[in-house]
Design a protein around this nucleic acid. Structure first.
Lengths: 344, 344
DNA sequence: AACACCCAAGAGAGCGCTCTCCGCACCAGC
DNA sequence: GCTGGTGCGGAGAGCGCTCTCTTGGGTGTT
């Protein structure tokens, strides 16, 4: 090669310029231990002069730390050609935002990975085993996601969003879904609704089960043992279909608890089409407090899930597991709050 | 340390098990050059047996390639505490999806970075210089973003989404915004609208300027030299405000071209509040074909921007620049299409 | 004044890989 | 039978860093 690039400065170069040893430069860069203040200044000047930037690969090689973590979305393959629906989902955006907010001050950036097939999951695990990231934040789009198990088996530190459907020894953060559903139930009853129904999420997902159980339980305690339910899919379309059915089967209902905002948005649309005023004729409470809640008219009263904080906590847990690999799995459960807006 | 972990297998271990040299194992792993088929099989077996996973740091150290690329969102600081609004924006989600779709088959994962302050931008550049990623995909949320310039100066390969406001020698992909606006204009005129107006994006953004220019130009050519405009901010709220103003100042308008779907969604809401039927009284055309377009009622007729394909092309360009560092900057301009739905 | 002690700084090994350089074996050509 | 080419595999350097070990000089104690 005749025209090799002007090789970027190394520790050695800085050391030479500063007139000290490589080890000393390393020490001031990593802020460790007794280095004379004058020499520190000397080194710093040499770093500036040479435009030195430490080589992460070399560092990683010896520290056995990548300094990156993975943010993995795992689930079934999307029917559309693109991964669109996952990443464009504001829920995922909130997770990413929460993780980034927590990690950025630490100089850590998440690697975005999509694991929507067994092959992809194997690739992701291999990638982590190769040391491309020190651990993984996992968001599963479906119940029974095999990825967490794979991570556990490979000894890769991982933290999940939401309790796994099958218990495995892995840390996770979650929401007190039942409490959230209770909040919704109490609010609907308090505003005078008496003929209530609920649109649930996919019932193989623990979160859906919990929200349903919490709602039923709260209603039962208050003298409403029977609550009509329709199972949805957490998407707007599903919410529309479910609301149609509910309206057909229970035309006189006056309140609905919808297990997430996207479906609630659909439900609102259908209610309006059928000439029902919200909240006068039918009150609607959603779940999540996603951006969609604000795009609805009336704006959605909803159970807020502090997704960003939860994602931040995931990152915190992951880092501590990376730091201390033999620590026991933990879980952190967050409390939901009710955000009252126009729909109920 | 008494209880050191059972050190993960290295090339050396595989070589020993297979009874060959380290170099040979490396050759079969990287699929290079003449290795006897029998020996290949031997090595593969040894790899499986030892559960070997190559160490990326070691490889990166010698190849001088991270095998990662950065996906950077650069712009002004968010007023909310969280990075929420950026990542929860479906537009960003589509970019991420398009990039991931293109990169995943290549075994490359994007590093998610947020650069919302000068400090953060400096950190991002430093991170790239350290070799944490081989190049950057840049999405700027505002015009005059200083990040691209920083990358160019640091010699970091970068590809931008959208033409930079100030010309700099860097590759980018973009949309033929003017053509898109023309499509909207022609459609509105074709359906009989005669009193048209437009809600623009922030006018310091080239895309906004182009959409406005394209719309005005197309209208002028068809005998409508004057078009009322209101400047928006690309957000739903802004769209609502702008529509209010438009309705006040031009109560008889019968068609609006809104520079993005989010604002169009807001405009639709306001039109309904004011008792205008869409599309009968006022026809509305949006821009982007974002998921919001489907959440509107009526669903939004909009100019589709093939964001996923554009992001994929960004990744392709970036990879080729990484491959061939002295290649000239290029740009690729995509064509918009009109998606006709209910609103116009 | 002699010794122990401590702390700052250097020397040097080594992390796991790639890749160039070589050597060896085999074959064709004269 | 010798030379030259070719194809396969090994040896070994070296990527840039961290970190242990060691050295040397200053300080404190008796």
């Amino acid at each position: 090669m005749t025209d090799r690039a002007p090789r970027t400065a190394t520790l050695e170069d800085v050391a030479r310029v500063a007139g000290v040893s490589r080890a000393t430069v390393s020490r001031v860069i990593n802020g460790v231990r007794n280095v004379d203040l004058e020499i520190q200044e000397l080194v710093r000047r040499a770093i500036a002069e040479t435009g030195y930037a430490p080589n992460r690969a070399a560092r990683s090689l010896v520290t056995r730390r990548a300094g990156n973590i993975a943010l993995v979305v795992s689930g079934a393959e999307d029917e559309s050609g693109y991964a669109v629906t996952v990443f464009a989902d504001p829920f995922f955006g909130r997770v990413a935002a929460g993780a980034v907010d927590f990690l950025r001050p630490l100089g850590i950036h998440p690697l975005l990975m999509l694991a929507d097939s067994d092959q992809a999951r194997a690739d992701v695990v291999a990638n982590l085993r190769q040391g491309n990231a020190d651990g993984a934040l996992v968001v599963s789009t479906h119940a029974e996601d095999p990825l967490p198990e794979l991570f556990v088996r490979a000894g890769v530190p991982a933290v999940l969003f939401a309790r796994p459907a099958t218990p495995i020894p892995v840390s996770y953060v979650d929401l007190a879904h039942q409490d959230g559903a209770r909040l919704a139930a109490e609010h609907l009853l308090a505003r005078g609704c008496r003929r209530l129904a609920t649109i649930t999420g996919p019932l193989d997902v623990p979160a859906s089960q919990d929200r349903l159980a919490g709602f039923r339980d709260a209603m039962a305690r208050r003298g409403h043992p029977y609550i009509p339910i329709v199972e949805g899919d957490f998407k707007q379309n599903g919410g529309e279909g479910a609301m149609e059915r509910l309206l057909t089967e229970h035309p006189k209902l006056d309140g609905v608890f919808v297990a997430n905002d996207l479906m609630a948005q659909g439900a609102l649309l259908v209610l309006r089409q059928h000439g029902r005023r919200v909240p006068e004729d039918v009150a609607v409470v959603g779940f999540d407090d996603s951006p969609a809640a604000l795009a609805c008219r009336p704006q959605l009263t909803t159970v807020r899930q502090p997704v960003e904080d939860m994602a931040g906590e995931m990152a915190r847990l992951l880092l501590s597991h990376i730091e201390n690999p033999k620590s026991e799995p933990t879980s952190v459960i967050f409390d939901p709050t009710l955000v009252v807006r126009g729909s109920a």
